[in-house]
């Protein structure tokens, strides 16, 4: 437990500093109101608005741990949201609609996983295929418009609240806990890390790398489906063109801010979702501070860069590893095994 806490300490400190910084520009940032049976306030907004990226980051963490990447998650959000909205609009009811959306996400993940694990395409290319073509699929489902619905139970998932707390917060927190528990209470976490660090040695040790890889991409698809459901329920409509647009990049950024190596191996889901909250704090802070919108991206880029530099012990280690790997490639150890015997 202590070790786990030490692992996420840099992210917690970063988050605290960012919140303090935002409070300077917007003094009521930490204020929380209770009105009309629900909590509200900027911090609650951060937790709620950060839900999609946090969910994507959970799945992305696992994919990156296997030394892969999933560029399709934003698009999968659009597809699953469209599928869910279509089911609701066709009168399926909430249960079946949710099942359809989640199943769609799993199928998308299965597709990516098969391309990567069985056909052996580079993850970045394999998932790029779905990233670019998937919006077309979503548009086919919505017939090119914003497919709206009016189902209180479904939209409750996006904008309702439970015990005064917005539902999306429950969804992402529970999902993160569930995945973290699944990884650490079973042997999955260890096996995922092993194939990410050295796939060939792992296979020789009897780990079923193919099945694990597929499972990891399916987990990413499932998380994207949950994010897609929240995004769709939130606006009571499926927007095939814009749902989840560019969120895959925020999710990757969250994983990196969470101190996870893009080269695979050791991972922390908790750190990744904290990374997502860091990003959302920046986004919300920019909106609240009232700067002209032309500055949004510049401010965000500057802050993200600062965050990454602040966490530089980690970054320095990654760079070191990268360099060592590159060196090893360039100059194979010349006299391996020639020690006098």
């Amino acid at each position: 437990m202590k070790r786990a806490l030490r692992r996420v300490l840099p992210q917690i400190v970063t988050l605290a500093i960012l919140m303090a910084l935002t409070s300077v520009f917007f003094p009521q940032f930490l204020a929380v109101d209770y009105q009309g049976g629900r909590l509200s306030g900027p911090v609650v907004d951060v937790l709620k608005r950060g839900a999609p990226v946090a969910l994507l980051a959970v799945g992305m963490t696992l994919v990156i741990a296997t030394r892969g990447i999933d560029l399709s998650v934003g698009t999968v959000m659009a597809i699953t949201g469209a599928a869910g909205a279509w089911a609701i609009a066709s009168g399926w009811g909430v249960g079946p609609a949710l099942l359809l959306a989640l199943a769609t996400g799993l199928v998308c993940g299965l597709w990516n996983g098969c391309l990567v694990a069985i056909i052996g395409i580079q993850p970045i290319v394999a998932t790029l295929i779905l990233m670019t073509s998937g919006r077309g699929i979503a548009q086919l489902i919505t017939e090119g418009r914003i497919l709206t619905f009016n189902d209180p139970a479904f939209s409750w998932l996006g904008s309702g609240s439970l015990a005064a707390v917005p539902v999306p917060i429950f969804i992402w927190v529970l999902t993160a806990i569930a995945f973290a528990a699944l990884m650490r209470r079973t042997a999955l976490g260890l096996l995922v890390e092993a194939i990410g660090i050295n796939r060939s040695a792992s296979a020789l040790a009897g780990i079923n790398a193919k099945v694990l890889l597929i499972a990891v991409y399916m987990a990413s698809g499932l998380c994207a489906a949950l994010a897609g459901i929240i995004a769709t329920a939130d606006i009571r409509g499926a927007d095939a063109n814009n749902a989840g647009l560019w969120l895959e990049l925020d999710a990757i950024l969250a994983v990196v801010i969470g101190g996870n190596s893009l080269l695979g191996g050791r991972f922390s889901i908790a750190a990744s979702v904290l990374g997502a909250m860091i990003i959302q704090t920046i986004d919300t802070g920019i909106l609240l501070s009232g700067f002209p919108s032309e500055y949004n991206l510049v401010i965000k880029a500057g802050l993200v860069l600062t965050v990454l530099v602040v966490q530089s012990p980690n970054m320095a280690r990654h760079w070191f590893l990268l360099r060592r790997r590159a060196q090893r490639l360039r100059e194979p150890a010349p006299v391996e095994g020639s020690a006098p015997r």
């Binding site: 079973t186 260890l190 096996l191 792992s202 040790a205 009897g206």
Partner: peptide, 14 residues
Amino acid sequence: ILALQARRGWTRPI
């Protein structure tokens, strides 16, 4: 423990 764990399957962590 890696090979042993792989043989036991992920559901039965050592």
